[in-house]
Amino acid sequence: MKDMTDALPGLARVREKFLSLLEDRCGKIVEYTLAAWQATEDTEKRTHLTGAGTILHQIAGTAGSLGLQDLGEAAQSCEQAIIDFMDLPNAPPEMCSHIIMEINSFVTCCEDQLTRTGSD
């Protein structure tokens, strides 16, 4: 729905830049998530998840406009899981597991996209 690639000819270049940043962004999200998983203090856990959420928020905000709807939706789903966790003062541990699973799906989605881009 939000794909602007046909409407804006210069968008191919922006999409290329987005994809060139994706691997690095994806790596940072994984780092933050693992750090959150290993954190023993709740504050530390939330700090790492906020870091992951910020990057996911950026991806969710642009992927759809660049013709990458699935990736954008996967990022949005992860971001929402993090927001839900943050909204609860004493979030149960299974919520953190849910975030890990969501991020795992997102990373798979990123890898698929980057593989497709590499083979194009």
Partner: peptide, 17 residues
């Protein structure tokens, strides 16, 4: 916007409009 991709998208949009 803190995301450079959004700013580039907007630049492309303004160019087209």
């Amino acid at each position: 916007d803190d995301d450079p991709i959004i700013l580039e998208l907007l630049e492309q949009f303004m160019l087209s409009v």
